[in-house]
Amino acid sequence: MTYALNEVEATAKKATRGAAYTWGLAEEAAKATRWLCAQGVDGCAVLAGLLRATDRATDMAPMSLDGDWASESGQLCALISGASLSDCAYRLPTGAIRMHNVVAPQLLLPFAAAAARHLGHPIAITWSGNTVIVSEAGLCTADIPAIDVADLVTVKTADASGQAVAQSTRAAPLATDWAYLNELAARTYAPATEESRLKGAGSGLSDND
């Protein structure tokens, strides 16, 4: 099945919150997932992979934004690191940002695109020997290397961007990933109470109505 990007964004937000991230980061995850899907990347698979690896995990934020980025737990969350990348975009013209052991590095791409818009300059992200270029117009590299954890991610300004890929208006996630995101999203729903049941749909009706 395919889903509208609005539905993807709403589900991603609830799923990320259900995985114990703050609402602020959940909003960032939702926008990032939608951005990936619009670029023709399976953003739902990327987010599902991140949330499977980080569900209720702790200490996955960069310990320091000076020098190389690393976490106390040994793995960096791409969502948290992406938000930090947005804050540190101003540093990129003077040197690369290096991150170690990044879970779901593809999720950094939307934040790099935001940095490109802020700087007015394309950004290059390299992991596992592959370089992906993003510009303010979007993703400029068609083939995105999929990997669960990148030992080293380097983010820097790029010399040129090339043409942005064609945009998609719908997403076609795998059924397993979509089901997992909805399973996490269900954690955000308040459990039903007797009062809410009485006020719910059909309340006050009898078989004789």
Score class of each variant (00 low, 15 high):
residue 109 L to S: 11
residue 201 A to R: 09
residue 174 L to R: 13
residue 105 P to Y: 01
residue 164 A to L: 01
residue 181 L to D: 07
residue 81 S to E: 02
residue 74 G to M: 05
residue 145 P to E: 02
residue 163 Q to I: 12
residue 75 Q to P: 02
residue 171 A to P: 03
residue 180 Y to I: 04
residue 135 S to L: 00
residue 115 A to T: 12
residue 198 L to Q: 13
residue 203 S to N: 12
residue 173 P to F: 01
residue 134 V to L: 06
residue 160 A to R: 13
residue 150 A to F: 01
residue 170 R to K: 07
residue 184 L to N: 07
residue 95 G to F: 01
residue 99 M to T: 03
residue 165 V to C: 12
residue 188 T to N: 10
residue 143 D to W: 00
residue 174 L to Q: 13
residue 201 A to C: 05
residue 132 V to Q: 13
residue 181 L to F: 02
residue 202 G to Q: 09
residue 105 P to V: 05
residue 85 L to D: 09
residue 78 A to K: 11
residue 155 V to N: 06
residue 85 L to M: 12
residue 159 D to R: 11
residue 134 V to W: 03
residue 117 R to P: 04
residue 117 R to A: 14
residue 109 L to N: 08
residue 82 G to N: 06
residue 139 L to E: 03
residue 90 Y to G: 04
residue 172 A to L: 08
residue 190 A to R: 14
residue 135 S to P: 00
residue 75 Q to C: 07
residue 145 P to F: 00
residue 85 L to N: 10
residue 130 N to T: 13
residue 140 C to D: 07
residue 180 Y to T: 10
residue 124 A to M: 12
residue 192 A to M: 13
residue 138 G to D: 04
residue 127 W to R: 11
residue 80 I to Q: 14
residue 78 A to P: 10
residue 170 R to Y: 03
residue 126 T to M: 00
residue 125 I to R: 01
residue 113 A to W: 01
residue 106 Q to N: 10
residue 151 D to F: 00
residue 130 N to R: 10
residue 204 G to Y: 07
residue 202 G to K: 08
residue 187 R to Q: 10
residue 102 V to A: 06
residue 158 A to Y: 05
residue 192 A to N: 11
